[in-house]
């Protein structure tokens, strides 16, 4: 199978993720979309690793996973604490950071 197809898939996933981040209001869903974008990137990295015949891309994919895991921990904690104080998980309700 032509490895370039994986790249198309990766782009598709990334686009879905980006659209989700921009469109959805629920913080959890937005968060999942971010994960989707990260994983789309991982797929692209692995594909390029395969195409070029070296392991750099795979190594970076592991890094990405580590960062994503850490981010999930922090992000979910924030979302939970926001939900506790504001009784809402909508990202549009948390709009106090403005002039």
């Amino acid at each position: 199978m032509n490895p370039v197809n994986y790249l198309y898939l990766s782009a598709l996933l990334f686009t879905i993720g980006a659209a989700g981040v921009l469109i959805r209001r629920n913080a959890i869903v937005v968060f999942m979309c971010v994960e989707l974008m990260l994983n789309a990137c991982n797929l692209a990295f692995v594909t390029f690793s395969r195409l070029h015949g070296n392991l750099d891309g795979q190594i970076i994919a592991f890094f990405t996973m580590v960062v994503a895991a850490a981010e999930v921990v922090v992000g979910l904690a924030i979302i939970v604490s926001i939900y506790r104080t504001r009784h809402s998980a909508s990202v549009d309700d948390a709009n106090l950071m403005k002039l």
Binding site: L22, R25, V91, D92, N95, M97
Partner: peptide
Amino acid sequence: VQNGYVRSYAVSML
């Protein structure tokens, strides 16, 4: 522009 909506920041980033 600084409207406090995360999603609009995301748009500008994108």
